[in-house]
Simulated scan of single mutants.
Amino acid sequence: MTAENQSYLQHITEAADYVRTKLGGVKPSIGLVLGSGLGDLAEKVEGPGYVPFGEIPHFPVSTVEGHAGRFVAGTLEGKPVIVMQGRFHFYEGYPMQKVVFPVYVMRMLGVTSVVMTNAAGGMNRSFQAGDLMLISDHINFTGANPLIGPNFKELGVRFPDMSEAYDRGYRELAKRLAAGITSAEGAPLRLQEGVYCGISGPAYMTPSELTMLARLGGDAVGMSTVGEVIAARHAGLKVLGISCITDMAIGDELEPLTHEQVMATAERTKPMFQSLVRAFVRELAD
């Protein structure tokens, strides 16, 4: 085992110890990871303590537009939470172990449940831009796994089970809550459910690549989440995954796409996204 590998657990511990000193006594049990365009939910946290990622020992720094790059801790719907306002991506050049580093930090802070969110392209023809999708499962097409290398028993078992990476009970709760959510215009929340394909990025996929992923069973595609969920399950956390479908990624109907378009759709979807996550946090058993 190299010195770098030996220090990974120590670095997680030191980062968690530092963050704990900034939480003002908050002991979070729920973690929220907010993807592109969805970070405003952190502004709803009451009595918040802010911890910029750049201050935390051994933390990487997010370089993506639309990601604030900080932890926000406090209460949301009466529950103690810690929110990642922004995240890290494999395409930024970080090794996958660094990408998932914050997941282990949250676990050491006492988090037992985590809501993973992202912006994604819809490959299922029944979807439309602006839908939300509960992630029922994922396909890891990043070419990497955060658990490769030495295993630390303090973090989790060597071979974690992934048969239910996204908690079935959490999905059922979210579906029940979504039935009562409407837009300001009275339109019902369109909540889908499907398989998320995680790719490395940063280039958007070609039409042939999208057709391949759809034929393999993918319903949505994005550049995050799968590594973090693998780490979360390794650490024993229960996961709810939600994708904001910001564009349609149908191989034979593909149109040019920019990050600005993704952000604009996320902005329009944000009110109902926030309503669903807040309702879920409120109903989640202590």
Rank of each mutant, 00 (worst) to 15 (best):
F273Q: 01
R107G: 02
G74P: 07
A178E: 00
I245P: 02
F88T: 00
G24Y: 14
G24L: 05
R233H: 11
A129M: 04
E164P: 05
K270N: 11
F90G: 10
G74N: 12
V103Q: 13
Y91I: 04
Q10R: 13
H138C: 01
L177H: 07
V229G: 00
V103L: 03
A285I: 10
T269M: 04
Q97Y: 10
P60R: 01
G69K: 06
Q128L: 07
Y8W: 13
F141Q: 14
G86M: 08
Q10C: 05
E164K: 06
E209R: 11
L32Y: 09
V100K: 00
P28W: 06
P146N: 02
E255D: 11
E46I: 08
V221K: 00
E92G: 02
C197T: 12
R158Q: 12
G25T: 10
T2F: 06
N145R: 10
K22W: 14
T211F: 14
G217I: 09
F88V: 00
G121A: 06
T225N: 08
S113N: 15
L155P: 02
V157A: 15
E55N: 15
E228G: 05
T63V: 15
D137S: 15
M272V: 01
A73N: 12
R107F: 07
E92D: 05
S36K: 12
T211L: 12
V114A: 06
A232C: 07
V195P: 04
H67L: 09
S126C: 08
Q261L: 01
F71K: 01
G143I: 08
I56G: 00
S7M: 11
